[in-house]
Simulated assay, not measured.
Amino acid sequence: MDDRAHQPAHRARRRSATDPTLVRNQPALRSSDGTIWIVVAGGFALACAVPLVLILVDPGPSAVVAWTTAVLMVVLYAALVAARFLIADRVQRLRVLAVLMLVMAAVALLGLLACVLIEWSTVPRV
């Protein structure tokens, strides 16, 4: 049984503020200077660039979507790097970096999924 239901409210709040298993209490969101976000986002952007470049080497019907996705990834990465150096408040900076990384992941996922669906739609059905 969950013993937190029997704790006073102030004690439950104090516990949640120091509980290292909570997402908001992870070191990358509390004590980092933001450099790790740049490194991870850069690696992620490079990993996403591989299939996009392969699509663009032999442009097919999904080339426009691949270009758009690639440009958005570069813009989002540039925004992430700019945020790392322009936002002074550590907590706000780390939250902005996390959000930008999530947006990069969403853009990459949707862009690559759209490219795959477009390419598959041109395959003749037997």
Rank of each mutant, 00 (worst) to 15 (best):
D2Y: 09
D3Y: 15
D3S: 12
H6D: 05
A9C: 10
H10T: 07
R11H: 10
R14N: 09
R15M: 11
R15E: 03
S16M: 14
A17G: 12
P20I: 09
L22R: 15
R24L: 06
N25K: 06
Q26S: 14
P27C: 11
L29C: 03
L29E: 04
R30S: 05
R30T: 13
S31M: 12
S32G: 08
T35G: 10
I36F: 15
W37K: 03
V40E: 07
V40A: 13
V40D: 01
A41T: 07
G42T: 11
A45H: 06
L46K: 03
A47F: 05
C48P: 00
C48I: 00
A49W: 04
P51Y: 08
P51C: 02
I55L: 07
V57S: 14
V57W: 13
D58K: 09
P59S: 10
G60V: 14
P61C: 10
P61N: 11
P61W: 10
S62R: 07
S62E: 02
A63M: 04
A63I: 08
V65N: 00
A66N: 02
W67L: 05
T69I: 00
T69Q: 02
A70V: 01
V71S: 05
L72G: 03
V74H: 02
V74C: 09
V75C: 10
A78N: 04
A78S: 08
A79D: 03
L80M: 12
A82I: 03
A82V: 05
A83Y: 05
F85A: 06
L86E: 09
A88Y: 12
D89W: 08
R90Q: 09
V91W: 13
V91N: 14
R93Q: 10
L94A: 04
L94Q: 05
A98M: 09
A98G: 06
A98E: 06
V99Q: 11
V99K: 13
L100S: 05
V103W: 04
M104C: 09
M104A: 06
A105P: 04
A105E: 08
A106S: 06
A106Y: 04
A106L: 08
L109M: 14
L109Q: 13
L110K: 06
G111A: 04
L112M: 12
L112G: 05
L113S: 12
L113W: 03
L113N: 12
C115V: 02
V116M: 01
I118E: 03
I118L: 14
E119Y: 03
W120T: 12
W120N: 06
S121H: 09
T122A: 15
T122P: 14
T122E: 12
V123L: 13
V123Q: 14
V123T: 11
P124Y: 05
R125Y: 15
R125E: 11
R125G: 06
